[in-house]
Design a protein around this nucleic acid. Structure first.
Lengths: 288, 288
DNA sequence: TTCCATTGAATGGGTGATCCATTTAATAAT
DNA sequence: ATTATTAAATGGATCACCCATTCAATGGAA
């Protein structure tokens, strides 16, 4: 019976409602008007305000990763909104990778460690919406990887070399056994490791973002045509050797020529490749 | 009176409800169990599925910018979910910059042009959550701007030069009149124009993302201490001249030294500067 | 005592009905 | 022809529930 007797928002906390955001109301009330009263992009809504407030608490350091927000019912009451609206805000923040919502007793909304893959989502959306083109993305990737290689040459640590070495060996294993799709997965991992080796998480995040979509194309290409980069293991070994010698120009040159070769491979038989295929392929789950 | 007689969804369309997602139900029903059944990160929820489906339609090109989704009530019925849950999904997509929800007759959920500033939000969140550091961000910015300058030297068009020229002149105006905070706004714009001049929207987006937070710091610094970069107009003129001559090395060198000078300025009296200040300052609205 | 099954409360997940606010088109009045 | 009114469509928000999951507390069995 306690569930129904919960005295959360009977009628009084609704005091916020009457005076609620009047916003667009009496702006043009006065007889004299501005010739071009840019009406606001969109009226401010409760869930936006809530998102903003929570982000504010994060920025101020009041909320930190690991912290738990009050239960939905409580928080809704505190904010003077319905639970549904609060949930819209929490959901948005969860999609943004800021929160994680967990059920059960001891559940709740927990502040997350930052999820660097959110940038990938932005990049995917921009592609889907046609704001950026595949061509721009590929070009950006070439430039970003050039930067990453040069930084990695300077900053890579022994552990980075070892991780890359192991990756190259897996690549060669997959090559020998003809497991081409797994080799693509391996390539994706290679660029992730390289990004980490550059020693800057911002640049690593950017690198992942511009690489993720590209690897979907490669995957789709390999899956559909069966063609694959020749002498990939050899290329990787050469590159890694240059990196270990901290030979910036050689490493950058090798990366550049490799990327050009991959690009050329992708552009053969362009009809088979399309934005739609690559974005649709390899959904989270990606049953072969 | 007619308002209440609207015969929208009386009772019948709820037919979809009974067969609803059983998802996590009888997974481990069988007596034999796997020794390590990695339970999913979190149970799949309706709103995630909806977001994914809509994104899928975008990726496939079925939905394009400008298109309108069915009304919430219809779409909820089509998907077999309640309107509230559908709204959670739509809200998330709106926060992601994919949709815009508009009220009124002829209103609805409209697919947007991609909003390149979503990457800025990701970057802010990563900073707030401590996933990346200010130092990494500044360092990344230096490298990205080096790239941008080199690309702009090659790709900038006459219109880019003209826009930058106008910006430099505004900068000098604000300098003469001592309007330092407006000059910071102007600087923000300068980097935006430079990013556009590089001719690649992906790189421009990245540049904006790494620049936005930085400019908040500069703003907070100028607002609190009143100090400001000396001879800024002069520096800008020199840089723009190098850019116009397509003198890559000179332009890159000028940018490098300028960024170093700004960094030095910011690091004086470090106590006054903090992540919190910069992130809290200059909220959307930013009443002086 | 130790261990395991049961129970129950806390909490997020989801529903359906209802009302409000805004916007626009159609209609009526001037 | 112009202006005011009305009505419908649609998002914005609320309320009152109910279900599913989780986990700690409880209690009985070995």
């Amino acid at each position: 019976m306690s569930t129904k007797s919960s005295p959360q928002a009977p009628a009084s906390p609704r005091t916020a409602s009457p005076k609620r955001r009047s916003r667009t109301s009496d702006h043009r009330a006065a007889g004299s008007h501005a010739p071009l009263s840019f009406r606001p992009i969109h009226t401010r809504r409760a869930f936006e305000e809530i998102c903003e407030r929570i982000r504010e608490q994060l920025a101020l350091g009041v909320l930190k990763p690991g912290d738990k927000l009050p239960p939905e019912r409580d928080l809704a009451q505190q904010l003077g909104v319905s639970r549904n609206v609060l949930r819209e805000a929490l959901r948005s923040l969860e999609m943004a990778g800021v929160l994680r919502l967990q059920k059960g007793v001891k559940g709740g909304a927990f502040v997350q460690q930052g999820d660097t893959s959110r940038m990938n989502v932005v990049m995917r959306d921009m592609l889907s919406l046609g704001t950026i083109s595949i061509r721009e993305l590929s070009e950006a990737r070439v430039h970003v990887l050039d930067l990453v290689v040069r930084l990695a040459c300077v900053n890579a640590r022994q552990s980075d070399f070892e991780a890359l070495q192991a990756n190259v060996e897996r690549t060669e294993l997959f090559t020998r056994e003809g497991r081409l799709l797994e080799r693509v997965e391996c390539a994706r991992e290679f660029y992730k490791l390289l990004a980490v080796a550059c020693g800057n998480k911002v640049i690593a995040m950017i690198t992942d973002a511009v690489t993720e979509i590209h690897m979907r194309f490669v995957y789709a290409k390999v899956a559909s045509s069966g063609v694959a980069m020749a002498r990939l293991g050899e290329r990787r070994r050469q590159f890694l050797a240059a990196l270990r010698e901290r030979n910036t120009t050689a490493a950058a040159r090798l990366m550049r020529s490799h990327l050009a070769a991959v690009q050329k491979m992708l552009e053969q038989d362009p009809g088979a490749m399309s934005l739609q295929v690559a974005l649709a392929e390899m959904k989270p789950g990606m049953r072969r």
